[in-house]
């Protein structure tokens, strides 16, 4: 079978981002946070391929650590929200009745709170922090995954062999484990991939606004917010962090589209 182009391109970009993030754990050209004021605004050179920033920090090293932080935050937040949401969706489909009603009503209702609004509330109460950003991103993922999981789980619950198992006295939890979860895995994986992209965008925006990763930890969003005050002096600093965000988001989006085409060729809807 021929692999769809979006899967190949997306997979390559994602591998690039994940590889960079992994590499940064063991090696970066320089210490990403070391300030050497004498070396500020260096142009690209062998030692600093993308130059240095206003405090003499190496841009490449910061981007690498930024990749690690972005990926880690998106991963933790999306897995957290996705896990809770999927569990709720499975529960709703398995139990039905008022439980399902309540879960789905809450999911409908939560659209009114985008991640940024949630992060703003948390920041106002607790002060800005990375934890708040993670909670906010996780929170908006709960209803998304609850819907996806419930929709595919509900389909499984109408199938003959599942009804047969139920009437043979098999418990709902056991049926969920044996039959429902294997069928929900594919759509949830596709959604996870797409939501990683959303998560990376959200982390970047929150960190840019000062509601996410706090100094001195490097992050793409933070690098951009620092670069913004220097647009006249050093516009080059505003380029690369944005390119990194774009590559990561594009990669996860294309990969998600590709996975969906692969798992579900009949439903090749444009999102």
């Amino acid at each position: 079978m021929r692999l769809p182009a979006n899967l190949l391109i997306g997979g390559t970009l994602v591998a690039l981002v994940l590889g960079t993030a992994a590499l940064s754990l063991v090696w970066t050209p320089h210490d990403a946070t070391r300030i050497v004021v004498a070396m500020k605004f260096q142009p690209p050179s062998w030692s600093h391929p993308l130059g240095t920033d206003q405090l003499g920090r190496d841009v490449v090293s910061q981007l690498m650590v930024g990749a690690r932080n972005s990926v880690a935050i998106a991963l933790v937040a999306v897995l957290l929200g996705g896990g809770i949401g999927t569990a709720l969706g499975l529960l709703a489909a398995a139990v039905g009745g008022w439980v399902e009603e309540v879960v789905m009503r809450l999911a409908d209702f939560s659209f009114a709170f985008p991640a940024l609004l949630f992060a703003i509330m948390l920041a106002a109460v607790f002060g800005p922090s990375l934890t708040n950003a993670v909670i906010a991103i996780a929170f908006i993922n709960i209803p998304v995954f609850a819907r996806v999981a419930r929709a595919s789980a509900a389909q499984v619950w109408t199938r003959g062999y599942v009804l047969a198992a139920a009437s043979a006295g098999r418990g709902r939890a056991a049926i969920t484990w044996d039959h429902v979860i294997p069928n929900v895995l594919a759509p949830v994986t596709v959604q996870l991939t797409i939501e990683f992209a959303v998560g990376i965008l959200a982390e970047a925006a929150l960190s840019y606004l000062g509601l996410g990763v706090q100094p001195p930890t490097p992050s793409w969003g933070r690098m951009l917010s620092e670069a913004q005050t220097l647009l006249y002096l050093a516009p080059q600093l505003a380029i690369w962090p944005g390119v990194c965000i774009m590559v990561a988001v594009l990669g996860f989006n294309l990969l998600g589209d590709g996975l969906r085409d692969l798992s579900d060729p009949m439903l090749r809807r444009a999102r």
């Binding site: 992209a197 970047a204 969003g221 951009l224 944005g242 965000i245 774009m246 594009l250 989006n253």
Partner: peptide, 10 residues
């Protein structure tokens, strides 16, 4: 894939 704030800076 492009954040609005980055596009703004560009």
């Amino acid at each position: 894939a492009i954040p609005a704030f980055w596009l703004s800076m560009l």
